Amino acid sequence: MTWAVLRPAATVGVLLLVYYRLPMDQPEDAYSVLRLVAALLLVGVVFWWQVRTIGRSALPGWQGAQALALVIPLYLLVFAQACFLMERHQPGSFTVPLDRTDALYFVVTVFATVGFGDITPVSSAARVLLTVQMVLNLLVVGVALKVILAAVRRRSG
């Protein structure tokens, strides 16, 4: 039981550590969009792998919680990195300069549909990036939760 609670927390902690320690000095080039697409595909592969793991787990409910603790933060960190890099390579893309924490904060407020209005995309590229995130947010919240819950129910039942 303790491991079932600590494991998701540790997963989020490790993901945050990687996000803050990951070197983000790659140049902005034609491959920037491809890197974002590749990172999102990685999130999809991790999601698929987690659903399969739930299907083999002796404790599918706990494994489902672990899956959510891995997939959702990973997804958000991909967009936080994209926002951070966009602001770094195209200053003025947002209403305020973004450091890593600001980028993560902004992406989470968009995901949570809170939108305080303190940070907004200004450039067309930033607006496109955030539009993609908002559309994918609907899929992550709707489809991902449904698939993970269905896998837990199928394994439990």
Score class of each variant (00 low, 15 high):
76 L>G: 03
59 L>T: 09
128 V>W: 11
66 Q>C: 09
138 L>R: 09
69 A>D: 02
99 D>W: 14
65 A>N: 15
149 L>R: 04
66 Q>E: 14
48 W>F: 14
5 V>K: 11
140 V>D: 01
123 S>V: 07
14 V>D: 00
84 F>N: 02
114 V>K: 06
77 L>A: 09
107 V>L: 05
15 L>S: 01
54 I>V: 05
86 M>K: 10
90 Q>V: 14
32 S>A: 15
48 W>E: 10
24 M>Y: 05
149 L>D: 08
122 V>K: 09
131 T>D: 07
29 D>A: 07
55 G>I: 02
146 K>Q: 12
77 L>N: 07
13 G>K: 04
23 P>R: 09
152 V>Q: 00
29 D>F: 00
136 L>R: 07
73 P>R: 10
119 I>C: 04
110 V>P: 00
107 V>M: 08
43 V>G: 06
63 Q>W: 11
126 A>I: 00
3 W>H: 11
94 F>V: 04
120 T>P: 03
127 R>W: 04
67 A>L: 10
54 I>A: 06
133 Q>W: 03
5 V>G: 10
37 V>R: 06
9 A>E: 06
124 S>W: 12
102 D>W: 13
131 T>N: 11
121 P>W: 01
127 R>V: 13
89 H>D: 13
14 V>R: 06
37 V>E: 08
32 S>F: 01
12 V>D: 00
104 L>Q: 05
113 T>N: 15
50 Q>G: 04
23 P>F: 03
101 T>Y: 08
24 M>L: 13
155 R>F: 05
62 W>P: 02
9 A>R: 06
61 G>H: 11
55 G>T: 01
17 L>N: 04
16 L>K: 03
67 A>S: 06
96 V>Q: 04
127 R>M: 15
135 V>P: 08
113 T>E: 13
131 T>C: 12
120 T>E: 12
148 I>L: 05
144 A>Y: 14
141 V>R: 12
145 L>P: 02
112 A>W: 07
56 R>H: 10
123 S>T: 14
74 L>A: 01
119 I>Q: 05
53 T>S: 15
57 S>W: 03
10 A>M: 10
72 I>T: 09
3 W>A: 13
128 V>N: 07
12 V>E: 00
77 L>T: 03
75 Y>E: 02
113 T>G: 07
69 A>L: 14
4 A>P: 01
123 S>M: 04
65 A>C: 14
118 D>H: 14
92 G>T: 08
88 R>W: 03
91 P>T: 13
83 C>I: 06
8 P>I: 00
42 L>C: 10
134 M>L: 13
87 E>V: 12
43 V>E: 02
109 T>L: 12
7 R>V: 00
21 R>S: 15
88 R>N: 07
21 R>Q: 12
94 F>S: 07
13 G>Q: 07
61 G>V: 04
44 G>E: 05
147 V>S: 01
